[in-house]
Simulated scan of single mutants.
Amino acid sequence: MNEVRIGIVGIGNMGSAHAKSILAGNVARLTLGAVCDIAPEKLSWASENLPGVPQFSDYHEMFASGLIDAVLIATPHYLHPTIAIDGFAAGLHVLTEKPAGVYTNQVQMMNDAAKASDRVFGIMYNQRTNPQFQKIREIIKSGRLGECKRLIWIITNWYRTQAYYDSGTWRATWAGEGGGVLINQCPHNLDLWQWMFGMPTRVRATCHYGKWHNIEVEDEVTAYAEYANGASAVFITTTGEAPGTNRLEVTGDRGKLVWEEGKLTFYELAVPERETCFTSKEGFVTPEMTVHDVPVEGEETAHNGILLNFTNAILDGEELLAPGEEGICGLTVSNAIHLSDWTNDWVTLPIDSDKFEAMLNERRKNSHVKEHAVSEIADLRGTYNSRWSVR
Rank of each mutant, 00 (worst) to 15 (best):
E226G: 03
W342E: 02
A84T: 04
P40C: 04
W212H: 15
S353N: 00
G255A: 00
T161D: 15
E326L: 02
P51K: 11
Y159T: 14
T343I: 12
M359R: 05
S44M: 14
D253K: 03
I377V: 09
W388F: 04
E282H: 11
R247S: 13
D293W: 06
Q108N: 06
L23F: 14
V102G: 12
F63G: 06
Y164M: 06
L182T: 04
Y267E: 01
S386F: 05
D86R: 09
S340H: 03
W346Q: 08
M196A: 08
G198N: 09
I38D: 13
P187S: 01
R119A: 06
Y165A: 08
R247I: 14
E48R: 15
D191K: 04
K42I: 06
W153T: 10
A17P: 05
K149T: 07
R5V: 03
T348Q: 09
Q55W: 12
K135N: 09
K115C: 02
V9R: 03
V4R: 08
V53L: 11
V217M: 07
G283L: 15
Q162S: 01
E249D: 07
E241W: 13
I136P: 01
I73G: 01
N189H: 15
T239I: 04
A74Y: 10
D37V: 03
E138P: 13
E61M: 13
E218Q: 05
S117K: 00
V4A: 10
G101F: 10
Y267A: 12
V390P: 08
E3Y: 12
N385T: 00
F133N: 01
S44C: 03
I215S: 10
A39T: 07
G255D: 10
G283Y: 12
E97D: 14
P81G: 02
W346F: 15
E300A: 12
A17V: 07
L50E: 09
K370E: 09
L307C: 14
K42S: 14
E326C: 08
A163D: 06
T129H: 10
A358C: 08
G33W: 05
D86P: 12
E218K: 06
R204V: 10
V234K: 01
V94A: 04
G262Q: 09
A373V: 06
A205K: 07
A225S: 13
E326T: 09
E41L: 10
E218T: 04
A89M: 13
F278T: 04
V181G: 06
T286I: 08
G101V: 05
I8G: 02
A89P: 12
N189Y: 15
G210R: 01
V181K: 14
